[in-house]
């Protein structure tokens, strides 16, 4: 009844509205980004010239840019390990469905719905202005810590604030993972005498490995892209010590207006993200094969 012409028309009809917007606002800009990366366009001049690989070569000599990579990697590594450990612990404690746990879960999840820029300046107030005020008043050593202006501390400050925001998010993923475990497996383990830590180590943990893999990669990729939080929490400071790759690229584009150079940086950053995503997909593929 439905001839193939009709089918083709249908396919077209259903796919085209999204594809138009996807092409206009993702595909075309992405291709343009590649194009700009090989030019010296400053964002305003109508003409620009091709500089071939100059922008990319410059990236590797740009100390500030290299530092932003170092900061971002170190931050992401520490954050990813810490947030997943904490959220896994929370999930194990709060996995059972009762009123207390549901309440606690919604408390720990709450910061996730707030705007990161708002969270950034709220914490800047607490760890900066308020902290200094309290030190003046009390003279206590604990308020002497310069959370935001000490090069040796600021990275950990960002990690802490970000954990405060996201621990509840990963907790939810892990709770879903644990609740997804078939109850009969658990019961069988209890019959065999498993309980407490043993139960967790040998039954729960191996079975939620897929959830952990996705939780880890989710936080890793998100933390590599860290941006709005830093705009108000540290503004990349002190100096440009806590400047992330994203913040560095944004500033290169919209503060110094070197669009061509910023595009080259963005492409290098994309390559890094794609490599990590590739590793993630490889992991999942392996997991699926094992399952089969």
């Amino acid at each position: 009844m439905l001839n193939s012409d009709n089918k083709r028309w249908n396919f077209f009809l259903f796919a085209i509205p999204f594809l138009i917007m996807y092409t206009m606002f993702f595909l075309v800009p992405m291709v343009m980004g590649f194009w700009y990366a090989f030019t010296d366009w400053d964002g305003m001049a109508t003409d620009y010239s091709f500089v071939m690989l100059d922008n990319f070569i410059r990236c590797f000599r740009d100390e500030r840019f290299l530092h932003s990579f170092a900061f971002t990697f170190e931050y992401s590594a520490i954050y990813t390990v810490a947030v997943n450990l904490i959220s896994l612990l929370l999930a194990v404690c709060l996995v059972r469905d009762n009123r207390r746990n549901r309440f606690l879960r919604s408390v720990f999840f709450a910061p996730n719905v707030l705007n990161l820029a708002t969270i950034g300046f709220m914490w800047q107030f607490i760890l900066g202005t308020l902290n200094i005020g309290l030190y003046r008043k009390t003279g206590w050593k604990i308020f002497e810590i310069s959370w935001l202006n000490d090069k040796n501390i600021v990275l950990y400050t960002v990690v802490l604030v970000r954990i405060w925001v996201s621990a509840g998010y990963n907790m939810i993923i892990y709770i879903a993972g644990i609740q997804g475990i078939d109850n009969s497996i658990r019961e069988a383990a209890v019959m065999d005498g498993a309980y407490g830590m043993g139960m967790f180590r040998y039954i729960t943990l191996p079975l939620i490995m897929p959830a952990i893999t996705s939780g880890v990669f989710l936080s890793l990729i998100n933390s590599l892209k860290i941006f709005p939080l830093l705009m108000t929490l540290t503004q990349g400071g002190p100096g440009y010590y806590s400047e992330s790759v994203s913040l560095n690229i944004y500033r290169e584009a919209f503060e110094t207006y070197r669009f061509g150079y910023a595009s080259a940086k963005a492409i290098l950053f994309t390559v890094v993200i794609l490599i990590i995503t590739g590793i993630q997909l490889f992991f999942f593929k392996k997991k699926e094969d094992e399952a089969v």
């Binding site: 800009p29 700009y36 790759v245 690229i249 584009a253 910023a262």
Partner: peptide, 17 residues
């Protein structure tokens, strides 16, 4: 693909578009 590419890559061209 668009779920993987960071916003910074299309940020400048989006302004142009």
């Amino acid at each position: 693909l668009s779920m993987m590419v960071p916003f910074q890559t299309i940020m400048i061209p989006i302004v142009r578009v």
